[in-house]
Design a protein around this nucleic acid. Structure first.
Lengths: 132, 132
DNA sequence: TAACTACTTTATAATGATTCTAAAAAAGTG
DNA sequence: CACTTTTTTAGAATCATTATAAAGTAGTTA
């Protein structure tokens, strides 16, 4: 299993559940966006075993902390995550309530001219809202 | 009352509660960011009467729909609003969990090169996360 | 002013995402 | 294996937000 090392290296024990979640998240052809609920359904369908909802939450948060997932800053009742952890941005289609990736190269360089004392920039994320 | 017209013009009846909320939101020296909870406290302190939580929610959503408030896209357990409805952006201080305005002129021009068929851009919002 | 309609407020209940709990299970270690 | 630490789990708890439905208010027309 290719994920055993990955987990061990980040100080997470490679449990059955975590490895299964890795498969669902990182064996996909393309990166994708998901909510915990959507992910739970996906797991149920793809892997033929049930993982407790609490475990899904725990795992996703652990993975996010380790940088294997990104949270997408958007106002929704549910939290959106992205398996694409490269530096990139998002369209949000207000009508269809769908997220679309917007690669860094599709947005000109962003220059933050204002500086805040004693703070450094961790990330710069652009959300482009779309309507019909 | 200067807000009576404003409300009437947008098809909202100028009720006592709405006018009081207008005062708290728009009579402040500076624009500010708030959650519904923070706003409720502010109302209680500033106006000497209680407005039902449901009314605060209704009013804030009505004002947002009319463009008198903006929702700030950020992942938090609570929704953040901004009385600054000009086209602008935000810093989010991860350590202090605080929002800071980032005016449009403090960010170089943003060019969205990718187009989505049949959709038009409604807004472009930048969130700059800060850490110590 | 009265009568009427449509909208608004309110307290409270319901919802639903997320977190907490504490006991059982699994992983790591010697 | 014996032992410690971490993880999983079901279910309960929390907490922001939304729904409900009854009472109140605004606007309108006469």
């Amino acid at each position: 299993m290719k994920y055993i090392e990955k987990l061990r290296n980040s100080g997470l024990r490679p449990t059955k559940q975590r490895l299964q979640i890795c498969e669902v998240l990182f064996d996909a052809d393309k990166t994708f966006h998901f909510t915990i609920n959507e992910l739970e359904k996906k797991i149920k369908k793809q892997i033929n075993s049930k993982i407790s909802l609490a475990t899904v939450y725990n795992t996703i948060h652990a993975f996010e902390k380790k940088g294997y997932l990104k949270q997408i800053p958007i106002n929704s009742n549910q939290t959106y995550f992205d398996t694409n952890v490269s530096d990139h941005h998002h369209f949000y289609d207000l009508n269809d309530e769908k997220l679309i990736d917007l690669e860094n190269c599709d947005v000109g360089p962003i220059n933050i001219l204002k500086k805040i004392n004693g703070k450094k920039i961790k990330s710069v994320e652009v959300l482009v809202k779309l309507e019909d």
